[in-house]
Design a protein around this nucleic acid. Structure first.
Length: 271
DNA sequence: CCGGACGCCTGTCGGC
DNA sequence: TGCCGACAGGCGTCCG
């Protein structure tokens, strides 16, 4: 589910409720996420103060007095801040109770999410260490993409979804960015010109920034920390619009599988 | 090194 | 109406 804009929306929603708070205790109802919540996590977190909240790619990082909490929402995860006594629903896998009476609750039907405490600096953790640049920060641009693509034959769509290339671009925003840049998703990444990579990098930034500004994309179940959906679905150019007219030329939007993921594009506007 | 396929889970939807 | 397969916002791992 969540790509960078949804994770950023979640971060902005939960941060004010969590920053500076002390953790009373962690309650785990279901340990079996993508990686099991390690035994001893409850003890490691109890009594610690939350010092910082940040995001790296699609990972949420909660900095504690000792160590860091690494969270990932997978395909179907969401976080809510609720009064501690709110009864849990199905797939509410864990609660982080705060001293102030609130609770951070992870809901994740498919259990592809992640909840890990690590003592080492997060940037040294294996899940984080190999990540590419943040698309909305310095260090990301067309030249970065162009250089990494030299000699490679993967479809450009799979290339920009590779978290070692650039973080945070999932299936929706990969499709949308390529549509905005006018690049065919199946084109081999090594055969996209430097100039077009400059357009693609700008498109990725624009699409992500616009999505963040409206609270992300809600297709079925994404909600922010307060339960509100995101509104970017209204702005989608191609994603999920198979057979509907291209907003640029009217040609029906095509759908096919590229790199095991559904891909949407306009055959006329994207080359 | 690279690229492609697979598996992890549950829920939903479309076709028969 | 019910069943069954396909598919869904991610990503680590394995294999050739």
């Amino acid at each position: 589910m969540p790509e960078l804009p949804e994770v950023e929306t979640t971060l902005r929603g939960i941060a004010p409720h969590l920053a500076g708070q002390r953790i009373e205790r962690l309650l785990v109802r279901e340990r079996r996420l993508r990686l099991p919540v390690p035994p001893g996590t409850e003890e490691a977190l109890a009594g610690q103060r939350i010092e910082s909240l940040s995001r790296r790619g699609k990972y949420l990082l909660i900095g504690l007095e000792r160590g860091t909490l690494i969270l990932h929402l997978g395909m179907s995860g969401s976080l809510r801040v609720l009064p501690a006594r709110t009864p849990p629903a199905t797939h509410d896998h864990l609660d982080l109770y705060l001293a102030g009476g609130a609770c951070l609750r992870l809901h994740d039907p498919r259990r592809f999410g992640l909840f890990l405490w690590t003592a080492e600096p997060p940037e040294r953790h294996p899940l984080i260490a190999g990540l590419g640049p943040e698309p909305l920060e310095e260090g990301f641009g067309g030249d970065h993409l162009w250089r990494l693509a030299r000699g490679r034959r993967t479809a450009v769509k799979a290339f920009i979804m590779d978290s070692g290339v650039v973080v945070g671009v999932g299936n929706i925003y990969a499709n949308e960015s390529l549509a905005l840049a006018g690049i065919h998703p199946a084109r081999p990444c090594g055969r996209v010109s430097r100039a077009r990579y400059a357009r693609l990098a700008a498109a990725i930034r624009q699409v992500l920034a616009n999505a963040i500004a409206v609270g992300g994309t809600t297709l079925r179940d994404f909600v922010a920390e307060d339960g509100r959906p995101g509104y970017f679905a209204q702005s989608l150019r191609v994603y999920g619009r198979t057979g509907e007219p291209c907003r640029g030329c009217g040609e029906p939007i095509r759908q096919r599988r590229i790199g095991q993921r559904s891909s949407f594009y306009c055959r006329r506007c994207q080359r």
